[in-house]
């Protein structure tokens, strides 16, 4: 469904007002996501996860330099195609809850998303109401975004992504700021979307809670894809993981060793 091949992303920055330098934010990253799969992209903040989402959606700042290949359904993702597919075939559940229109009620937000996907107004309305019911949001259908809790707002965003009938859904840190109950609910919804045959890319720093829903996990470190492993590989002492970084990520979890070789913390992991 989505094939990323040796993607390199560079952004300009200005150490002084006049001097421009390039920072490599994504470094030769390769990633393949299949339909029906939840693919987690895990890494520390600043590893380039959110930029990856922006690169796929075509939402990078205009000054960005992009190399490598991006294919969606076996066709290259050009800026024009990204514009055309955004909100239809490609959906992003953004990290920031301010992505909701502050002046629209929940059912309007979802209905608009349905209309963007090509449904007529009555059909869109009906679909929106169905989905709000499905996400246990019927009571909040006439609420404005500021009246929603963090978990409810996140579910509205997921409903919008689902109603657009997108084949690829990218969720950027969907569990941040949610309590455990809400978080589990949101992650379960993403899993359900994947079961319908869609591809879901789950971007998160929270390895532990991504594992139960993810099929495969790509570990990122400083813009590079260190390792892609199945979620089942994260067990025991992490013997099935090939890279030291992924292994120490796993062992650092409080339910596991809650420790790691100090050397791994400092030293840059070998490029897998």
């Amino acid at each position: 469904m989505l094939h990323i091949d040796r993607l390199i992303l560079q952004l300009p920055h200005y150490p002084h007002w006049w001097r421009q330098e390039w920072t490599t934010c994504i470094d030769a990253l390769s990633l393949h996501i299949a339909p029906g799969e939840v693919h987690a992209v895990v890494g520390a903040s600043g590893a380039g996860k959110s930029l990856l989402a922006a690169a796929i959606m075509g939402l990078l700042p205009s000054a960005a330099r992009l190399e490598g290949a991006l294919h969606f359904q076996a066709t290259p993702l050009t800026p024009a195609r990204q514009r055309q597919l955004r909100g239809r075939q490609l959906a992003l559940i953004p990290q920031s809850l301010s992505a909701l229109d502050p002046l629209a009620r929940s059912r309007q937000q979802v209905r608009w998303a349905a209309q963007r996907a090509g449904l007529g107004r009555p059909a869109a309305q009906q679909r929106a109401d169905e989905l709000l019911a499905h996400y246990q949001l019927s009571h909040a259908a006439t609420h404005y975004p500021h009246e929603l809790s963090g978990g409810m707002a996140r579910r509205v965003l997921i409903a919008m992504a689902q109603v657009s009938n997108a084949q690829l859904v990218i969720a950027d840190e969907p569990s941040v700021g949610l309590d455990p109950t809400q978080r589990d609910r949101v992650l379960a919804k993403l899993k359900a979307i994947a079961r319908e045959g869609k591809a879901v890319m789950l971007i998160t720093h929270d390895l532990r809670h991504a594992l139960p829903v993810a099929d495969r996990v790509t570990v990122m470190y400083q813009g590079r894809g260190i390792e892609t492993a199945t979620a089942q590989a994260f067990r025991g002492q992490g013997e099935q993981l090939t890279s030291p970084y992924a292994r120490s990520l796993w062992q650092a979890l409080p339910d596991n060793a809650f420790s790691t070789q100090p050397s791994v913390l400092c030293q840059e992991p070998a490029f897998a």
């Binding site: 200005y14 007002w17 006049w18 700042p61 000054a63």
Partner: peptide, 11 residues
Amino acid sequence: MNHQPRLLAAG
């Protein structure tokens, strides 16, 4: 990107 207004303002 967001440095452009700075340069413009300086000019």
